[in-house]
Design a protein around this nucleic acid. Structure first.
Lengths: 338, 338
DNA sequence: TTGTATGCGTTATCAT
DNA sequence: ATGATAACGCATACAA
């Protein structure tokens, strides 16, 4: 059914190997035959089989993107789309494809390793650091298998991430510059690196300003609306209350806004609210939220580029990217407005 | 480097074909040898090469998902994540992988056809109907290549979609039931099917209620905040103004809410606002929006299942799924509350 | 039940 | 510059 390289060879009256060389534009084939063979390929509507090529070349021309879709809270999830776009934009021109792998219930050790790596289904991997456990990294390292982590990682591998600490600093500094003086920090599980980094930024900014925060101003918990509301209610009804709040997510910030509204606390006049992440709706709250925008597309681009470098064994060593966030100032912290 | 079927065969003192049969759990291999060979495979850490298997079986065990990432407005984009999750959940257990293909600038006719189809990189395709042009569908039909469209389509192929018309009806009926009587409809490009379907639902609901709307109550345009604001400003300042509005998207609704706020129009008392789509923030507006929730995961599941049916050539003929949306009532239309 | 031989569609190493 | 032939790793029809 499908027309193969042999069919073309016969039709062109040359050997298979010649056709193959034409395919790869080998310099030692005359222009004449090249033209002739190519003409025939067009006529016969020939397209080389990527599987056969892959077998011969021992490469799948595919990279895998690993995510854990079961975690709704996953940092990666919101930016999924942009990251994929970024990756595609660099691997596409190199004739690579992207295959997605959901590793939620593949707890059976090495299941995905079989499915993609040992399998040779992919030539390299980009994975969220929550998926990339220590054992997994160790195994990949040992295999010498190319991979890039999205999110900071401790092992020797390369990774790309946002500068969460800088983000924490920027939000906090901005609040202080606006004349607020008692910032609180709401949201985040203490054991998650994304939380500790962000919190660190907050603490350092306070430190630099010669200030400090009482411990109860730092409230851990799920980074959702409910927790934001609960924490804000508690903080804002205390005697020594914060006059501004840094929120781990849009959802936390929304909860905070609701609490403030119910308590009759004016924003930004009596309370400043700033949040990490521009998405999914910081532009659309009442009032609009000051937040941090991050170039998720670039994150994808960089991880893609570095992975391709590894695959093409350009020995670049281990690399790290800390993407600087961009502060977007909106009404929720513009004290002088009110 | 990599251990192959031959290595296993030697170590086990059997023929390659025997190992192959063990691999596929052929019934005509004794339990004894099966056990023995499997033991050795474990010891040697053997994993079959998917490329070689693919070549021999003439199948890639992969399905492709086609999207146009350049269209930020793309319907598919917001639900991307859920849809992918749905697809994965059905193809994964069948040992299929998902590869993503971004067809934005691949305008050169058939570029992606080469990259994925003629190529035999994928065994089937799931594509948004905006990507699946008529010519493309025709070519796939002619090839007998399995594909499913996400979004209604005119060609004989199978597709899955939401019942946008039902959605339009549900929102409009709900508004009428709440005692509103003059609904307007804002947002959407007249040539887009998703718009015409939704609008049709709105019109039919009016019709059934024995009502009709003046033409100026239907405002076309980009389905974004700016257009929502502009349209609402114009409608609400007219003499004969609507008392409720059906919005194509959350963004349109947000613009409408802002306009109402500026004009001092109380929601829901003086104006009811309902929107399609629960995402990205209908829960988080002020007041929260009545909207339609859709089971995007199921959309993915169904498209995946049907595609696998096609690939496994269960001749099911052409199938269509119209998923019923779920009305989520919130404050923006609860007139009796105020 | 197991083994032999051939095919899947390329690439790559030799000769010529 | 071109051609014959052997990989690449597995599946399968046919023999034994």
């Amino acid at each position: 059914m499908k027309v193969t390289i042999s069919d073309v060879a016969k039709a062109a009256n040359v050997a298979k190997s010649t056709v193959s060389k034409v395919l790869n534009d080998s310099p030692k084939i005359s222009q004449d035959t090249k033209h002739r063979v190519r003409e025939i390929m067009k006529q016969m509507n020939y397209t080389p089989s990527s599987i056969a090529t892959g077998l011969a070349r021992q490469s799948s021309n595919t990279v895998g993107l690993l995510v854990d879709m079961s975690k709704g809270s996953e940092f990666l999830n919101q930016f999924f789309y942009n990251i994929i776009g970024g990756i595609e934009s660099v691997i596409g021109p190199l004739k690579y494809e992207l295959t997605l792998c959901n590793v939620q219930h593949n707890d059976e050790e090495g299941d995905f390793l079989n499915r993609l790596v040992y399998n040779q289904r992919v030539d390299g991997i980009i994975a969220n650091n929550s998926v990339l456990t220590e054992e997994l990294s160790a195994q990949l390292d040992q295999l010498g298998f190319p991979y890039i982590s999205i999110g900071e990682s401790n092992d020797p591998a390369s990774w790309v991430d946002f500068d969460n600490e800088a983000g924490g600093r920027m939000l906090t500094c901005h609040l202080l510059e606006q004349g607020y003086s008692q910032p609180a920090f709401i949201g985040g599980e203490p054991h998650e690196r994304i939380f500790t980094s962000r919190l660190n930024g907050y603490l350092k900014a306070l430190n630099q300003a010669g200030r400090s925060a009482p411990e109860r101003f730092i409230v851990n918990g799920q980074a959702d609306e409910h927790e934001g509301y609960r924490a804000a209610m508690q903080l804002l009804q205390g005697s020594d209350r914060p006059d501004c709040i840094v929120c781990m997510t849009n959802y936390v910030a929304f909860g905070v806004l609701r609490a403030a509204r119910e308590l009759g606390i004016a924003i930004p006049a009596q309370l400043g609210v700033a949040a990490f992440d521009e998405y999914p709706f910081s532009r659309y709250t009442t009032p609009p939220l000051t937040s941090l925008n991050i170039d998720t597309f670039k994150l994808g681009v960089t991880s893609g580029q570095w992975l391709m470098d590894l695959i093409q064994s350009k020995n670049t060593g281990s690399r790290q990217l800390l993407l600087e966030p961009e502060l977007i100032v909106r009404e929720s912290t513009l004290r002088h407005l009110s």
